[in-house]
């Protein structure tokens, strides 16, 4: 697999898997208005996934975007471990979103300057969407953190639980290094400072406490996933795999 393909799939897979998780909220939101908001976010994410997968398909030269979404096994998915984490309660979903959105806001901002025109155009379009997602998850975390005692406790627990997935954002491996050297990819290790500042100021306003450093979990970007991802994919890929010759 080419470096550029893997790099593009990593981006696409984050959107696709998180989109799938956000879509699970449909008809289950805490208010009808919020149900609609989460569907909007899921739709943005599927749109992003579609865009990046179309580009991946072009690089691949054989597989279509749908093949890439529906006919790959978990070990060939390269999303962050964070995005496959199950939704849990609404506050848990919003913590997961806040951690991810804050990072992706910074990431897309940089990627929109990529020398690769396709990636830069996709990032530019996605950046507008992620700005809104960030506003949405940030507002909710402030409400829930600074809401009732119960809500504060719930989101604090989620923050503590999900913190271990955040180091993966800033890892640089071979694929990244080659892309950075070609001025295509983003040096995410340089984003950590700003990410930390935004997260800290948000959790301060939300009257939450930053979790202490714990053992981090990474590996998603190389296809090492929890079994949560296989169950997600089993459901998502069920029809195309069961009826391989059918067109839909």
């Amino acid at each position: 697999m080419s470096t550029l393909l893997k790099y593009t799939l990593r981006i696409a897979d984050n959107s696709l898997i998180l989109g799938q998780r956000m879509a699970e909220w449909c008809s289950k939101g805490p208010t009808l208005e919020e149900d609609i908001a989460m569907s909007n976010i899921a739709l943005d994410l599927f749109g992003q996934a579609n865009g990046f997968l179309e580009y991946a398909s072009k690089i691949d030269g054989q597989k279509t975007a749908d093949d890439l979404a529906f006919k790959r096994d978990a070990s060939n998915f390269y999303n962050f471990c964070l995005v496959e984490v199950e939704n849990g309660h609404f506050g848990n979903t919003m913590i997961r979103s806040l951690l991810f959105d804050t990072f992706y806001l910074l990431f897309y901002k940089e990627l929109s300057k990529s020398q690769d025109e396709n990636l830069s155009a996709l990032a530019f379009k996605s950046l507008k969407e992620i700005k809104y997602h960030f506003r949405h998850s940030q507002n909710w975390i402030i409400r829930l953190g600074d809401g009732t005692k119960e809500s504060n406790k719930k989101v604090q627990e989620s923050l503590n639980n999900l913190w271990k997935y955040t180091d993966e954002f800033f890892e640089i491996d071979n694929v990244d290094q080659i892309m950075i050297d070609q001025k295509i990819g983003v040096n995410t290790s340089l984003l950590k400072k700003e990410w930390t500042e935004i997260i800290e100021s948000t959790i301060n306003e939300a009257k939450l406490i930053k979790p202490s450093t714990i053992k981090m979990i990474t590996g998603g970007r190389d296809g090492k996933h929890s079994n949560k991802l296989s169950s997600l994919l089993k459901e998502m890929q069920y029809l195309p795999r069961k009826y391989p010759n059918a067109k839909w």
Binding site: G29, H89, R143, L144, D146
Partner: peptide
């Protein structure tokens, strides 16, 4: 869904 969202609605109101 309605019951599971109650704590969220309450927290937003109190906030």
């Amino acid at each position: 869904a309605h019951n599971e969202g109650r704590w969220v609605r309450e927290a937003a109101k109190v906030y």
